[in-house]
Amino acid sequence: MSLSNFQEDTRVLENKNYKGDYFCITFHAPTISPSVTPGQFVHLRLPNSPDLLLRRPFSIYDVDTELSTLSLIYKVIGKGSKALSQVSAGTTVNLLGPLGNGFPPANKEKLIIIVAGGYGCASTFLVAKTAVNPGCCILGARTRDDILVENEFKQTGFEVNITTNDGSYGHKGIVTDVLQQKLNGLPYNQSASIYACGPDAMLKAVGRLALKHHAESYLSFDMPMCCGVGACFTCVIKIKADSRDGWEYVRTCYNGPVFEANDVFFE
């Protein structure tokens, strides 16, 4: 039997403080990196943390196929991410991946609109990097200090729009303010494909707006996970189904993390 997912001992090349509590870590991962598609994730075993039994899932931010590297962006929030921030270059880190069903390839006829809340920019960056025709992206965060990889998005040729809740940078407000304008401003013969990642409330708002405008939209959900491969049923979200309640719990690691907005059961 051949094995289709990979478990690889990778080497940390760099683990740098990006800004504030945000870090960017890069691994030499010759087995995993060549088959990564946008929106997929790796499941990381923390080295030197025997008390933390569970792996941590991270969206793959970037890959370099020539150097066989992959990078993640993460925020130091709890014990695990703190331990990760202290891992030095040269350390061996075991990864499972690439896991999950990422974003589908963009239809060349459609305008790609990327909507990213906070570190949701990490899972959507490869969409921009691999797009045939650059579209636009909307990066939203609470404040200026939480806006990440703006220049990297610009270098892909995408138009970059910034929103912050406190107005410290870009449009004061939320990403759906700008998304609404973009969708309203589309020529009658142009349709859009929306690729979004961020907090649940943002995804819900983006999905609703997309459905209202008959735009296809793909939402990437960030749920806590244990196994990362579909075995434990930790990371479920409600998806429309032909059941008594009209929904069923579906595993984001196995069937997602990307779902079409139309399939998601929003309460």
Binding site: L53, L54, F233, E248
Partner: peptide, 25 residues
């Protein structure tokens, strides 16, 4: 019968262990 299982969050890591309440989905 099919079963939804319990609401989320369903698991939590604790020191040297984990707690689960999946609810047999």
């Amino acid at each position: 019968f099919p079963s939804h299982g319990n609401n989320t969050p369903r698991t939590s890591e604790v020191d040297f262990g984990m707690i689960n309440s999946i609810g047999l989905q």
